[in-house]
Design a binder for these strands. Structure first.
Lengths: 320, 320
DNA sequence: AACTTCCCTGACGGTAGCTGTCAGGGAAGT
DNA sequence: ACTTCCCTGACAGCTACCGTCAGGGAAGTT
């Protein structure tokens, strides 16, 4: 960060109205504390009415909150904000309206030279959208409000694609975006436990006036990863899955959205995953099929057999 | 007078709204005119939208907007910018440093009331990262510069995972982000045509001093979609692929990263795609395998046969 | 077309200024 | 007495800044 940026940052901090110590400033801005003293001195000398208190409960305040410190971004910063907006759009971010307003404001505050430079660099990158389900931004907006303000929602969730008329009351804790899909995680009163719901499978959603308490230090990330696939009911023993293959195929499989979580070890032609036996025989065969002959299961033998079973089954099915 | 003092003094002079010349500034602040030019450049580079006119009646002014209404974002706009940064990070965006700087400025700029609100809404959403290959930000940064400034790069590209010692000179037109992968599209001098390269498969990359002309109105998106898979050499006739299945499976397959492009028509239990025959028999079988028995090929019959062939082949392979 | 007023930039040599470290001092609160 | 706070001077290293010089182009006037 340049000196100007840091000086302005100090002004913004002081302008917040709260007393702040030199140590806090030095930590926030990652500068040496001696430099903080110097900058404060510089600002004071320049006429900024800074009040400094020594001793306990000491720190700096402004005489009044009237300093107008301008906000500006250099072309790299602006370009990156514009690009970030593009990634958010690609993901189907629900706050697109506010984001467009922000971007629009930003784009009005450059002169022609700056604008040309920003465009040049902005156009270096193109983000191509993938296919998404029908717009779920409406539901996401509702959910966001409910999460932020702590209100339960009543949803009609349809997991299997078949009509069901049961509503659920859900305390939404967090919205999740993962692997090109939107989820809401929350406490489901119907099931009396924390559940995740794919937003594109919500048929209807109604806000309620039921207030709930958000749990402290809830990590949606942890919960989510633990519940990636339908839970196998009984605790089963962990077993290694050993796969041989070419460099590229292994690279792909080690970064697989599901299998990647269970990677234990790999070399240039072998990867070892640790999985529960139940998962191994129910889901893994289908996950491996698209790799064709570019990978080979070395262990467990039972999975090789299971694979052949699945394949035979499919042959019968497709010969009908 | 310290530099900061003079820089801020210039900023206030410009903020008066009147046009002012470099000479006037140098006299008022008793500085050399070369230094004035430097300070103006510093401010401009930092993002202050200064308008400069040469010749008679020349001088500096600030963009009108900036005078009347300094840049200000409300909490929704700020939250959305913060979220956008999170999506960019998830994608492995190369401009993360500049983006962090921008976000850092924004977060320091908001007052405490705004900050609490922003945090509340910011924490409503969690973006979970998928697995990515080793950091390619270095290459992406180099590529971005080469794209923006129009310089060729020399790359060593490794598509098959085997060692090859042939370099290519490439005129990079655009960086592409699609389906969680980064590509560069450009004119390949080795192949004498436009090609796309997956950035994580670039083994080495060197900037050159060879300047090239960016083509006008180049849509990387169009090119990219047309070259999604290895090109089938001869023009083959288009044929329909008819698939039956349950609602959910069909929903998934119609949004498939590849097949989605060829969707012609669908109903609640059937989808029709139009594809070239060659693609149909070489790639489609593998793309359909993960769907197991949840979908069924209705037409063409030749594909059903091909599917059975592929499955038999795989059985032999996995029984070794 | 020539001239003048303006913004602009690169290169150079010299040195001013900036930074972090170290040492020391005083005010305020427990 | 101790701790937490603001504060300052001095130093070495080195980076960035400054004024000077030279040159270029845009815009307006005569």
């Amino acid at each position: 960060m340049s000196k100007i940026d840091n000086i302005l940052a100090i002004l913004w901090m002081l302008n917040s109205g709260e007393k702040i110590t030199a140590k806090q400033i030095s930590e926030k801005l990652e500068m040496n504390i001696r430099t903080v003293y110097r900058y404060i001195d510089t600002l004071s000398t320049s006429g900024v009415p800074i009040i400094s208190d020594t001793g306990h409960n000491g720190g700096y305040t402004l005489l009044n909150n009237f300093i107008e410190a301008p906000l500006f971004f250099d072309f790299e910063e602006q370009t990156s904000l514009f690009h970030a907006a593009v990634f958010a759009e690609e993901a189907g971010y629900y706050g697109g309206e506010a984001l467009n307003r922000a971007i629009s404001k930003l784009s009005k505050y450059s002169n022609q030279e700056q604008e040309a430079k920003i465009n040049q660099h902005f156009n270096s990158l193109e983000v191509i959208r993938r296919f998404n389900s029908l717009s779920i931004a409406g539901f996401l907006n509702e959910l966001e409000l409910s999460v932020a303000d702590g209100y339960s929602v009543k949803i009609h969730y349809d997991k299997s694609g078949e009509q069901q008329l049961k509503f659920r009351l859900v305390d939404p804790y967090r919205i999740i975006y993962w692997n090109n899909k939107w989820y809401v995680i929350g406490f489901c009163h119907l099931r009396n436990e924390i559940r995740s719901f794919r937003v594109d499978r919500i048929e209807s959603l109604m806000p309620t006036e039921n207030k709930f308490e958000q749990p402290e230090n809830f990590s949606a990330s942890d919960f989510f990863k633990k519940n990636l696939l339908p839970t196998i009911e009984d605790k089963e023993e962990i077993t290694p899955l050993i796969i041989n293959g070419g460099y590229r195929a292994l690279e792909d499989i080690c970064q697989h959205w599901f299998l990647g979580h269970y990677l234990q070890e790999r070399s240039s032609d072998q990867a070892i995953f640790l999985l529960e036996k139940g998962i191994l025989h129910t889901y893994i065969p289908y996950l491996l099929l698209p790799y064709g002959k570019s990978i080979q299961v070395i262990e467990p033998i039972s999975l090789k057999k299971r694979l052949v079973e699945v394949l035979s089954d499919l042959i019968n099915f497709h010969q009908k």
